[in-house]
Design a protein around this nucleic acid. Structure first.
Lengths: 231, 231
DNA sequence: AAATCAATCTCGTAC
DNA sequence: GTACGAGGTTGATTT
């Protein structure tokens, strides 16, 4: 990994065109050839970048650039897509190279898959007397997250999201339409379950007779982990 | 901006929990307090990070950590959300600080807004004899990208996307349903226009009587820029 | 390899 | 400030 602090301007051509005027920035050239252009603010997204697989070539500036004070051209090209990044280096304030080795990678806990697994184990969060038929119940247009039986013999289709927005309601609506035609399942009702449900999604769901349930991941995880329940 | 190359492990607690085992990584501490943890590969996304506004405090390791070889604890906390990042530093291989100043920011060209503007000026791309009624035609459920009149007196609602997928078709369908009830506009047909239309979206659109148009941004831009037309 | 879907998404913008 | 949609989305999983 090579770290360079430089005064530079940057031009990107690819899925769109973009330009960065002359300023001092951090350039990170990774071992896989990729390049990141960072400013001293903003979030983790670079101002500009090139994703691997790509190659960086350092060129002498043409006469016009040289007379404007450019020391080097860094050209980063993505062979497959044709995307190209041109960094004009005006001044190098720092330049160092480091060996990092491969990274063991990130271990996560608390993503949508965890939510769905927990909810399948605790369907009473959705309502009393419900029984899990199965997770990822297959249909012609994709799997339904959870399929439940209610005590009256009806079916409940549950869509699980970490953040519930309008798209999730549309998705569940398509499932309900399809499942409702199956005489073995009918009548089918819908439940939209998420850690956070956006107002528009709630309105649309309610309008379509879909019940919304807000999930408490930490609480559900506490029950899973064997904390005593009082009853 | 401070750049540190260090052997470290990282733990994140917040919207989820995540852990990075001990390895050599780049730590970027930006002027706004944010921290990025990068490996020597992958794309522009860090392995772990904390977004501003947040604060970094350097602590002496506790006895247990110290005996395991930890030199310092870097604790980065987001006051508002309660998210926290703990970096255990085992060895510092590089440490430098740099003044970058504020960045003038990125100038883009070729995003959805540009597409819509160009298409509004070149409605003949969609069909002959069409006339633009207006861009961003307001409805109760949001603005329609383009509303056109066809020579027969009917209305065409156009949804413009850079990449056309199933969501865009659903959105246009909702508009068509609503607009079709207006006797001043009826009959209303739909056109789904995008630089790239996914197969599933094309199937759904066709099934609903919506015509798909693939847009050539560079070509349309060439016309806009004053290239001569032969007629 | 292509498609599908989630994300500590981030980022702009309109309300 | 919040909500909503786009993104050079990226990244993971499945077909």
């Amino acid at each position: 990994m090579r770290l360079v602090i430089a005064r530079c301007s940057v031009d990107y051509t690819g899925r769109l065109n973009a330009h960065l005027p002359l300023a001092t920035r951090l350039l990170v050239h990774k071992g896989d050839g990729s390049l990141l252009v960072h400013s001293d603010g903003g979030s983790y997204k670079p101002l500009n970048w090139m994703s691997p697989p790509c190659t960086l070539t350092v060129e002498e500036p043409d006469a016009e650039s040289a007379s404007a004070g450019v020391l080097e051209h860094w050209r980063v090209t993505h062979a497959k897509t044709g995307d190209a990044l041109l960094v004009r280096i005006y001044e190098v304030l720092h330049d160092s190279t480091h060996e990092l080795g491969i990274d063991p990678g990130l271990q996560k806990d608390g993503v949508e898959a965890d939510l769905q697994r927990l909810l399948a184990e605790q369907v009473d969060v959705i309502g009393d007397g419900l029984q899990l038929v199965r997770r990822e119940y297959p249909t012609a247009i994709g799997p339904v997250d959870l399929l439940l039986r209610d005590p009256a013999g009806g079916t409940i289709a549950v869509e699980v999201k970490r953040r519930g927005d309008i798209d999730g309601v549309e998705q569940l609506t398509r499932y309900l339409e399809l499942l409702g035609r199956d005489p073995h399942l009918s009548p089918v009702t819908g439940v939209f379950a998420a850690q956070e449900i956006k107002p528009q999604a709630k309105v649309l769901a309610t309008d379509r007779g879909i019940r919304c349930v807000t999930l408490d991941y930490e609480g559900m995880k506490g029950i899973e982990s064997g904390a005593p329940r009082l009853f």
